[in-house]
Design a protein around this nucleic acid. Sequence first.
DNA 1: ACCTCATATTGATGATTTTCTATATTATAG
DNA 2: CTATAATATAGAAAATCATCAATATGAGGT
Lengths: 103, 103
Amino acid sequence: MELSNKQITVIFKALCDENRVQIFRLLQGGERCACELLDEMQLSQPTLSHHMKILCDSGLVVGRKEGKWTHYSISAEGAEVAIKCISELTAVTENESKCCCGE
Amino acid sequence: MELSNKQITVIFKALCDENRVQIFRLLQGGERCACELLDEMQLSQPTLSHHMKILCDSGLVVGRKEGKWTHYSISAEGAEVAIKCISELTAVTENESKCCCGE
DNA sequence: ACCTCATATTGATGATTTTCTATATTATAG
DNA sequence: CTATAATATAGAAAATCATCAATATGAGGT
């Protein structure tokens, strides 16, 4: 499963906004519907909806539709992918110390 | 070590741009100076410098100044912080299934 | 001291993102 | 089938971000 640079940016975009980080903290307590999240955030309903779309696109959050409601929760699989991704990106594979610039 | 929402966004901003992800891939081979990175990226020198600042601010990359050159490398400590951060944020601590909206 | 090379900073511009209001969609209740 | 409630989408404004050209800084070399 090789992710493109673009796909990686989509994953981590989830964590690049303070409101979205706050939404993760709310979801840590378990599944929440959009109206509950809206109650606890200082955002308009369309803005929350926009953030939830970005979170779902990242794979870190999943939405479950049930009647009128959409229930959101943290995806353990998405989290695993993100952690594996950051682990791989930050894994240094050097086998010798290379000097550049003719030092 | 409790990170604020704002601090978390600074960490993951590093991975929200395709060029910056590409820089990680280049740094996987070991320490590189800015001029080497510039050779391999389709960016102007000031733009690369701008990205390197964001990467260093995130803690995922460190810069080491030596004479005229700045050598950049991936920070294992920074990576550890980022992984711990995403692990904590995505850890669900629910102990009972809560239903909202009077279901 | 001057020149050159590597990198950083400034300032401007276009692109993207966040946010809102207004409206549309979809589901249930009466 | 109409009304209402929950969520999504469209469109516009404001803020932020990525980018570049020009310039500044700072370290060696001559």
